[in-house]
Amino acid sequence: MHSHVFLTGPPGIGKTTLIRKASEVLISSRVPVDGFYTEEVRQGHRRIGFDVVTMTGNREKLARISADLRNEDCTHRVGQYIVDISTFEQFVLPLMDSFGKQKSTTNNLHRLVCVIDEIGKMELLSQSFISAVDKILDNPSTVVLGTLPVSRGRIIPFVEEIRRRQNVKLFNVTKENRDKILDEIVTSIQDCCSKKAK
């Protein structure tokens, strides 16, 4: 029986949209959800970076194209983007830490769904983030709803470790199924929550 649900697929296929829709359904059925998702930042028709957004709507910078960050530290770079690891860690790690320490009681059995969108190259520049994800995935009182990138050429070891976990159910999102699998994703998460409650 799986304990966590991850969506995978190429960029732009609709993983984040499905995560947000599934979260809305879960919340409406009284399953509290917290965590974060990654959102594109655009200037007109041009993508200039990414922000991290919590489920409550708080937002912080994750990355910007290097031309817009000429005076900032260029140590953490993915392609044309400079990743603001310090801001990301300060914003996300306290939230994740609370899930890593979460324990079930009769009063909070369903306060357990942690959204992590996504576990990708930018986020994985932070060793602290990797440790936090490991801790959450190992916590028997926590259910993760997350996204993983598709490896294009170069394998990302930590992503492959998550894929191989026996307690992870993986949904491969495609153009053909992305409008049809929302109910199955929600049911899978609800099953995970029910298992945790036993």
Score class of each variant (00 low, 15 high):
Gln43Lys: 14
Gln43Ser: 15
Gln43Leu: 15
Arg46Thr: 04
Ile48Gln: 10
Gly49Lys: 06
Val53Lys: 07
Val53Thr: 12
Thr54Tyr: 15
Thr54Cys: 12
Met55His: 04
Gly57Tyr: 07
Asn58His: 08
Asn58Cys: 11
Arg59Trp: 02
Arg59Thr: 14
Glu60Met: 05
Lys61Pro: 04
Leu62Gln: 06
Ile65Leu: 02
Ala67Cys: 04
Ala67Glu: 14
Arg70His: 03
Arg70Val: 03
Asn71Asp: 08
Asn71Thr: 05
Asn71Ser: 14
Asn71Ile: 07
Glu72Ile: 06
Glu72Asp: 07
Asp73Arg: 10
Asp73Asn: 02
Cys74Asp: 11
His76Cys: 10
Arg77Gly: 00
Arg77Phe: 01
Val78Met: 08
Val78Gly: 05
Gly79Ala: 13
Gln80Pro: 13
Gln80Glu: 11
Gln80Asp: 15
Tyr81Ile: 05
Ile82Ser: 07
Val83Pro: 08
Ile85Asn: 02
Ser86Lys: 12
Ser86Arg: 01
Thr87Phe: 13
Phe88Lys: 08
Glu89Phe: 15
Glu89Asn: 08
Gln90Arg: 15
Val92Asp: 06
Leu93Val: 06
Pro94Ala: 05
Leu95Ile: 14
Leu95Phe: 08
Phe99Thr: 03
Lys101His: 15
Gln102His: 15
Ser104Gln: 10
Ser104Pro: 00
Ser104Trp: 06
Thr106Pro: 04
Asn108Phe: 04
Asn108Ala: 10
Leu109Gly: 00
His110Arg: 15
Cys114Phe: 13
Cys114Met: 11
Val115Ser: 11
Asp117Gly: 14
Asp117Gln: 12
Glu118Gly: 04
Met122Leu: 12
Met122His: 09
Leu124Gly: 07
Ser126Val: 04
Ser126Asn: 05
Ser126Phe: 13
Ser128Val: 03
Phe129Gly: 09
Ile130Lys: 15
Ile130Arg: 15
Ile130Cys: 08
Ala132Thr: 06
Asp134Trp: 00
Lys135Asn: 05
Lys135Ile: 01
Ile136Gly: 09
Ile136Ser: 09
Ile136Gln: 04
